[in-house]
Amino acid sequence: MSTVQESVTQPAAVVAPSKKSMTIGTTATLVVLALLLITPLFVKNFFIFQMTMVLIYAIAILSLNLLTGGSGQFSLGQSAFYAVGAYTAGILMEHFGVNYVLTLPAAALVCFIFGFLFGFPALRLSGVYLALATFSLAVAMPQLLKLGVFEHWTGGVQGLVITKPDAPFGLKMSQDMWLYYFTLFISVVIYILAVNLLRSRSGRAMMAIRDNQIAASAMGIDLPLYKTLAFGISAAFTGIAGALGAIVVQFVAPDSFTIQLAVAIFLGMVVGGVGWLPGSLVGAAFIVFVPNVAEHISKGLSGAVFGVLLFAVIFLVPHGAQTIFGLSLRVRKKQ
C-alpha cells in the first residue's frame, strides 16, 4: 500500500438492490392501488389534500430514487428542480392562461433541459463532490427565484397565487378529490415509466454505472450520455411533481423551496429504501405525516424528529422500508 502516488480504490457509493428486487409483485401493487383509489371516498377533504401531497412527494422521491438508486449519483438539490417545475406551471397558468394539464409536460421539458445542463458539470464529479454541487444549488435556489430581473414573472418574494382547477366533464366531485385522482393517474403513469426504464437497456446501463463505473465504461457504456440522461429524467419527473404541487397548493413562493425540501425528499428516499421504487410511497407518507405529528407536540420539532429517525434508519434498517417489507414476506412464507 505504500505507493508514492496516492491511489484509492473506490467502493460503490450506493449499495442498492439488484434489478429484480426493485419492485413488488403484481398482487401487492394492485392492493396498494385499490387502497389509493377507494380511500378518498371515505375521508375528509383535508385528508384528501394530504394524500395528494403524499403522491406528489412520492413522484419527487421516485425521481431521486431513479437517479441515486438507479445510476448511483447523488443529489441534494432536488428542491431546485421541484421549484423550477412549480414555477413553470405557475407562470404558464397565471401569465399565459395555459390549461393546468398542459403545464405538466411543459414543466417536464423545462426541468429536463435544466437537469441535463446541470448534469454536464456533474459528469466530472462523483460522490461527495456531486453532493456538494447539488447542495449549493439547493441553498442558492430561493435567492435566484427572488431576483429582481424575473420579478415580473415570478412575483418576487410574494410568489404567485394559482387558481384551483374544477373537475372537468361536469363531474360532481370536489376540486380536492378531482386533483387527487388526477395526481394518482399521473403517479401511476410515472411509476410504470420508471419501472420500465430500469428494465430497459438504458436502465441496465445506469445500474452498471452505479455498481462499477470503470467496469461499465470498459464494457462500452457511454458514461457521459447515461449520467446526464439520468439527471435529466430525474429532473423532469421532479419537475412534474413540482408542477402538481403548485397546482394543488395553489401557491408558489421562493421560500417553499429551501434546502429543507431537498432534505425531506432525500430523507424520504432513505426511509423508503434506496433503489426500491415502491418505497418512494412509504417515504412520501413519512415526510408528509411525521412533521404533522411532530408540530403538534412542539413547533420546530420536525427537523429533530427527521434527523433522529434518519439516524435510526441508517443504523437499524439500512435498506429502509424494503427491509421491513422483505421481513414480513419471509414471515408469511414460513407460516
Binding site: V14, L301, G307, I314
Partner: peptide
C-alpha cells in the same frame, strides 16, 4: 466503512437535528 450515501444521510440528519434543536 459505510457507503458515501449513508455518510451524506448522516450529515444531513445532523444538520436537521442541530437546526431544529437550536430553534426549539
Amino acid at each position: 466503512n459505510a457507503p458515501v450515501l449513508v455518510h451524506v444521510a448522516g450529515f444531513i440528519a445532523l444538520f436537521a437535528i442541530l437546526n431544529s434543536v437550536a430553534g426549539l
